[in-house]
Design a protein around this nucleic acid. Structure first.
Lengths: 345, 345
DNA sequence: TTGTAAGCGTTATCAT
DNA sequence: ATGATAACGCTTACAA
């Protein structure tokens, strides 16, 4: 390992002080353009790279953002991370990513690691069984910003970045009702999480508003896996009054339901109209194409990262925007469209 | 921001030297168990956390691994990252992840950032148009280990972690031939990349070995998007001699092909038997279920990270294992199974 | 516009 | 078994 050149080396070679070199490299206004050029070219020549540790040690900031997600192997999460990475990169921040695997315990461990790594801020989507934010107290105490996205929890210390899951659930259900469904089943995830409980509330409110009974047997709380989808179909088909609509809180699971229903001889959307959630790529790959709620993952990631960075730069007071609400969109495709669409000419 | 306690604070409070405290916290053998306990409990009491920058500055290592991937919003990549994250976390390494968006230019920029961040090592899956590794020369020169996974390039400086794409392509094609296919189309990605060129070679070799003609019109190089799948179907159906087999180098695209074919009235696998690649979740969500090649993403991530960490710890000489080959597995499902499987009793 | 010098928190080396 | 001290490379008052 050859020796790394430092600002002292550059300084010595140019008969300048290290301070001047440091300033020049940081584009400090009070350094003449001439010496700046001189220093920059010499730096290039030596293959100089700034030592982040020395710099961080001195500055007491890390330019690193911690991200904790429930899992990495989900398309939605990947999209969010892509957005975060893009923004962070543009602003010269690094991302440190870890997954909680849906467990509070692991989430606590991750938070601790992030704390010790001294991240400048934290972006978190909560594990499915997290029911308090005490493990972020160390951050709150030090005023290190923590922002929650997608799976959030109301808390005065945190900015939340979400879509209006209640409204989305309401719209999806209302759409099914509009297609003539009178008995709509809802398959969802752990209702500790806002994303699921809010969609459920929206579903219930829609039923209520349209004078449909709220049969509790029609609500199935699961882990939204492929198997859960097949199980839900089993439940559905064995009901005395078979549902004619199905609202599933995730596309992967919804796709699985569609497969199961078709295998059992149901036709979709005639017998059962189905709406999923997320607009996962799978929605357009299954037949019939899945109606769903589009969920701007990339944008959510970008906004989360940008908000955090703005906050770190003091450009935005966190308290002024405690919740950022992104738009969603109901996408009606074949799986729920009983009246054929008009064909464009 | 309250002041962070340092080893000096602990030292002063216990009437010890900072050196002793440092050693105790690092579990140095030459410190009495008694003082170690004393120091540890005091550290806990003060909420002390080690300052990584000071430590890194002194030690000249970062315990950070850089990862460059073509894109984050792919299920396969997400799986790989999950594996890497797991291993890195267990060994107290941090991951810094960035995406090249399939562009050499962005990959170069990422490499530069990683270099300036002084990552201890690099894990890279190449962008689709990368045709040389010159942008990693800075790493090679400093003997910073660079490992390539999945999309690799032969190079004496790098360890490669791959599956046998040639064999996988050969097996997939041979399977189709075994199902009676005589005219097999192959839809693949940029053949600059080993993953695609090797699968193509395997495809060709299989045709050759079974005495089938290698019609170049049957090979379609695309970006493997959903649209590319539909386009491929268009090409296929307009051929004078319509193919009876289809081998697609990615499940997402394959699923799209299946959808397109069915829409055009083909039955699968009777008219066209289809095999995809990757065992993406979509493979089991489309009807008919997609035959595919299982590709151990999580495992690949774990092995890549572990190998790199082993190398960094001097536990493994990089030159001794220049290529790590992981197992793959042809999964036969409905989309290519013409003879019905025997039913287990 | 540039220089001087102190200090960020650790760890390694040499002493004791 | 513990202590004193000098780096590590950078930034930033303060001075010139």
């Amino acid at each position: 390992m050859e020796k790394e050149p430092t600002i002292y080396d550059i300084a010595k070679l140019l008969n300048l002080s290290a301070a001047t070199v440091s300033r020049a490299l940081n584009d400090h206004p009070g350094i003449s353009t001439q010496t700046k050029q001189l220093i920059n070219s010499k730096a290039l020549e030596l293959g100089y790279r700034s030592n982040t540790f020395a710099s961080n040690l001195r500055r007491k900031e890390t330019r690193t953002i911690g991200v904790i997600v429930p899992r990495l192997d989900s398309f939605f999460i990947a999209t969010v991370l892509a957005g975060m990475e893009k923004v962070a990169n543009e602003s010269n921040y690094n991302l440190i990513i870890s997954q909680s695997l849906e467990q509070l315990k692991k989430e606590m461990a991750n938070a601790k690691t992030m704390y010790n790594t001294r991240v400048d801020g934290l972006l978190v989507s909560l594990a499915s069984d997290t029911d308090n934010l005490n493990h972020f107290n160390t951050f709150f105490r030090k005023n290190i910003p923590v922002m929650l996205f997608d799976r959030v929890m109301e808390q005065k210390n945190c900015t939340n970045i979400v879509i209006d899951n209640f409204k989305a659930g309401y719209e999806a259900t209302t759409h099914l009702i509009g297609q003539g469904c009178r008995r709509i089943m809802h398959v969802t995830g752990n209702i500790k999480r806002n994303v699921y409980s809010d969609r459920l509330k929206g579903y219930r409110m829609a039923l209520l508003d349209h004078g449909l009974p709220a049969d509790e047997d029609l609500v199935k709380v699961t882990n939204l896996t492929r198997q859960d989808g097949l199980d839900a179909v089993e439940t559905l088909t064995q009901m005395t009054q078979v549902p004619d609509g199905l609202f599933v809180a995730s596309d992967l699971c919804a796709a699985s339901c569609v497969g199961g229903l078709i295998k059992k001889g149901f036709s979709i959307p005639q017998d059962v109209a189905v709406v999923g959630f997320n607009d996962d790529p799978v929605a357009q790959l299954v037949a019939p194409n899945l109606s769903t709620v589009r969920y701007p993952g990339q944008e959510m990631g970008e906004i989360a990262a940008q908000s955090l960075i703005n906050h770190l730069n003091g450009r935005l007071r966190i308290s002024s925007t405690n919740t950022i609400l992104l738009n969603h969109e109901l996408i009606v495709r074949e799986s729920s469209q009983r009246v054929p669409k008009l064909i464009k000419t």
